[in-house]
Amino acid sequence: MTSNFEDTWKVEIRRGLLQYAVLAIVRQHEEGIHGYGIVKELEERTNGLLEIKEGTLYPILHRLTKERILDFRTEKSEAGPKRKVYVLTGEGDRVLRVLKANLQLYIEKLEELEK
C-alpha cells in the first residue's frame, strides 16, 4: 500500500520534472537535438532518475511544440529517415527561466518546512 503511494507520487512528480529536464537539455544544444538524443541524455545525465519509456517522450515534445516552447527543423538521420531536431524558442527560454526560479523556490520552502 505504502509502495503504491510512493510510486504514484513519483509518477506525479516526475511528469512535471520531465518537461523541465527536456527543456534544460534542449537549451544546452543551441544547434538543436533530436528526440532520441534527448532520451539518451535523460538516461545518462540523470543516472536513470528521469529515465522514461522512450516512446512517452514524443507526446511531451508535441505538446511543447504546440505551445511554441520548442520549435523544430528536419534533418536526415544517420539511419536514413528524416528526423525532427528540436530547439528552444525565445518563449521557451523565458518559460525555462521561470520554471527554474519556481523550482528553486519550491525546494527552499520545502527545506524550510523541515527545519
Binding site: H34, G35, Y36, V39, H62, S77, E78, A79
Partner: peptide, 20 residues
C-alpha cells in the same frame, strides 16, 4: 494528423535506436 505525426516520430526513433 497529430497522431500520424507522432507515429512518424516513433517510427524514426525505432529505426535510429535499432541502427545504433
Amino acid at each position: 494528423f497529430e497522431t500520424e505525426d507522432l507515429l512518424d516520430d516513433l517510427r524514426i526513433h525505432i529505426i535510429e535506436a535499432l541502427a545504433e
